[in-house]
Design a protein around this nucleic acid. Structure first.
Length: 513
RNA sequence: CGCGGGGUAGUGGAGCGGUACCACGCCGGGCUCAUAACCCGGAGGGCCUGGGUUCGAAUCCCAGCCCCGCAACCA
């Protein structure tokens, strides 16, 4: 089955933040999960670069706008690569094919009589160079420049007949209750719909940066609308019909909960107007908050830089830590200390240590060769059953983007394997030669658990997981066919295993809670 | 009366009608294959407040307090 998934494209007014990495990683885990299960996946991500603000920022820095956005876009891409985001395309909204596609998209609105000229009127602050709503004003003045006189300004804009689609959107939500998930976000959308939709302005005047509004000289496409259209142009809309036909509609848009309105109301209406199919689903994930106070953002000074962080904890570790610690559906507190704590608990003491002790015992007691499975005792059985349960549970959770639970299911196997060793105590049994069979059965089961964990972890730890497979001498999770590896008992006896340096050296700096 | 979501052990969460659960952390014990790791046990809360429904309420209802997000042209 084909599976076309997208992240929101990142707005390039600043350097990448951890929240970008979080969204990219979650989406990447899902994309890798689908690929691993045999789906034909197209994963689109990229950057949103046509905002007016970029032009202003470039002017302030005395450089061409293009140079500014190139620089920022490169940073986002660098971050994506450092985090091993397996995108099939990194789209930039300055890409020529995107521009062509956007114009075609807008032409369809016009042809459908959904665009008309009107005036947008509002309070304009010359300090911010931005419009404000009446309700945004503080004592009738700009909230940021209270001493400056705010002006009433009018601007001629093209408007999109959003109101025309109100009923069809209501029908959509009625017919497809899972169009927007999780449910909390859907409830919000229903509330907005209930209160009615107004037409929206979709053009800006007299800007030199941005995509020219087709056939309307002097206007550019308002950046939000140009940005949304990337999901279509990213797979060839307007330039490569064959590709577009193959991938559209998107199976899933992964976004942050702050832009739900745009993706769950505007975007479907835009597609309806353009005569295109709607995406299957929009998933609005939660935000990371700094444990303690406030949101994880630059302005509050508690930013965790995703590039520095990936180098510090390791990108695989961080991918795991974020997705495990911060359930995708909701807001979660996060901090370097929390990450350290979980790193030690789950990765160093848990997974890493399990791999060490299992391989070391095989080396010491079985000449570094995979022992025969032997007779399955009660402890081996319990471990096998835990692993089999994890195989099932993982997929159910992962399919609905519940990565936290999906990972918990995998780590239940790690935990059970540690208990299994404690129960069977190969280091004791080995002292009595007649009990050799017990030692072998115990170690075989332990290795087998590790093997399955390695395969299950691939979507989350794309570099560590193959390293574990390498230690066991089995096919890399990056290439293995799922059906050929995802079953208990496939590890071949007699194969040489390798010992490897610690996967996750314990962090001694970690504070205790 | 704008909309939505929350307030449960030190911390983070689950539970959403049957008398509190999980993880981390902490304390004690065990083991020694392993990254002072691993295993077992324990302490610690009665679920924001006040009413109500019920045989029985974190769980349902009402009122209030507090926190967070959103409030459409700044992505």
């Amino acid at each position: 089955m084909k599976f076309y998934v997208t992240t929101a494209i990142a707005y390039v007014n600043a350097r990448p933040g951890l929240h970008h990495a979080y969204e990219f990683t979650g989406t990447d885990a899902l994309a890798r999960f689908h690929r691993q299960r045999g789906d034909d996946v197209y994963f689109l991500t990229g950057t949103d670069e046509n905002a007016t603000r970029n032009e202003q920022a470039a002017k302030e820095q005395g450089i061409p706008t293009r140079q500014l956005v190139d620089r920022y876009a490169a940073e986002f891409r660098q971050m994506a690569d450092l985090w091993h985001i397996s995108y099939d395309r990194f789209i930039r909204t300055v890409d020529p094919d995107h521009i062509v596609g956007v114009q075609e998209f807008v032409r369809r609105w016009i042809a459908n009589d959904d665009v008309y000229l009107s005036t947008y009127e509002g309070w304009y602050c010359t300090g911010c160079e931005a419009f404000y709503e009446e309700s945004d004003l503080v004592n009738g003045q700009c909230p940021i420049h209270p001493t400056r006189q705010i002006q009433r300004l009018k601007e001629e804009n093209y408007f999109f007949r959003l109101s025309k689609y109100e009923q069809r959107l209501k029908d959509l939500y009625h017919e497809r209750p899972d169009f927007c998930v999780p449910e909390v976000r859907r409830n919000e959308v229903l509330g907005w719909l209930e209160r009615g939709l107004k037409d929206v302005s979709v053009s800006r005047r007299n800007l030199t940066w941005g995509i020219p509004f087709p056939d309307k000289p002097g206007h550019t496409v308002y950046v939000w609308f140009d940005a949304l259209i990337n999901y279509a142009t990213g797979v060839g809309f307007g330039t490569d019909e064959k590709k577009f036909k193959k991938w559209w509609p998107a199976d899933l848009h992964v976004i942050g909960l702050d832009i739900t309105r745009f993706h769950c109301l505007f975007w479907p209406a835009m597609l309806m107007s353009a005569g295109l199919e709607l995406p299957r689903q929009v998933y609005a994930h939660g935000f990371l908050h700094y444990a303690g106070e406030g949101r994880l953002s630059r302005s509050s000074g508690n930013m965790i830089d995703p590039i520095a962080a990936a180098n510090e904890w390791g990108s695989d570790a961080l991918r795991y830590l974020l997705l495990r610690e911060a359930p995708f559906a909701k807001d979660s507190p996060i901090s370097p200390d929390l990450l350290d704590l979980r790193f030690n608990a789950d990765l160093a003491n848990g997974l890493g240590n399990l791999v060490s002790r299992a391989t070391k015992m095989v080396e010491l007691y079985c000449e570094a060769r995979v022992p025969p499975p032997g007779k399955e005792g009660p402890s081996e059985k319990a471990l096998r059953e835990t692993a089999e349960r994890a195989l099932r549970a993982h997929d159910e959770y992962a399919a609905r983007l519940d990565f936290s639970e999906a990972l918990a299911a995998i780590f239940a196997v790690v935990e059970e394997a540690n208990k299994h060793f404690q129960r069977t105590q190969p280091w004791q049994a080995v002292k009595e030669p007649p009990r050799k069979g017990e030692v072998e059965a115990s170690l075989y089961a332990g290795l087998e658990a590790v093997r399955l964990v390695a395969y299950l972890l691939f979507p989350y730890m794309p570099t560590i997981s193959p390293r574990i497979a390498e230690v066991l001498g089995v096919e890399s999770p990056a290439s293995a066919k799922w059906e050929a590896v995802a079953r208990w008992g496939l590890l071949e006896s007699g194969k040489q295993i390798r010992t490897a340096p610690s996967l996750f050296p314990r962090l001694e700096r970690a504070k205790t809670a």
